[in-house]
Amino acid sequence: MTVFDMAEVSLRELNQALHDATDGEFEVVNPRGAHAVASGIDSEISVTIDGPVGYYCAGMHQRGSVQVNGNASAGLAENIMSGTVRITGSATMSAGATGHGGLVVIEGNAGARCGISMKGVDIVVGGNVGHMTAFMAQSGNLVVLGDAGADLGDSLYEANLFIRGSVESLGADCVEKELRPEHIETLRQLLAAAGMDADPTDFTRYGSARTLYNFHIDDIDAELAGGAS
């Protein structure tokens, strides 16, 4: 285990060391809310961060794992490609934004726009999520054990949203959908991967009504021409 004390090591030195590593375990202490901690990891390393982190912790994460023992600010694991990012506390806005793959686990709550524009990532939130969660979410799965704020899944594409608690309101084109056996199995696997104890059948699935996928274009002239012929 290699330990980096951010009271003594700069962000640049820390991230460069993590980028240069190809394997191994690392511990970061005294992060003190620093931004971009452990961003850009691209190898099978394991990083544990003891304390709160600022914006974009584990941004663009690939392979390997990052665990934050504390809270995180905006953009936790934004654009994650693969691997795992776990946080024992809560995350503010845009956690897992645009993630293309991998798993993000937030044991506490997530703020606004969790999973915004997600593109294949799986996100599991132990607590509640804020407004505009999964806005324009394209694919992947979002699991929320608590409640969801207003405008859940606005302008959703093909992502699946599983909410165990209440939903303040659904966004445009987001609708409740049947929880079929394959979804229950997906939920079971995600809950197990996240280490969360919950019954998959207690969740409600939300998805896209797909009414916004294409413009609705009238053509009165063609209709009249067709009627005349």
Partner: peptide, 9 residues
């Protein structure tokens, strides 16, 4: 902060 993140990556 975003630009710092991009530069770090």
């Amino acid at each position: 902060i975003k630009i710092i993140e991009l530069r770090e990556i």
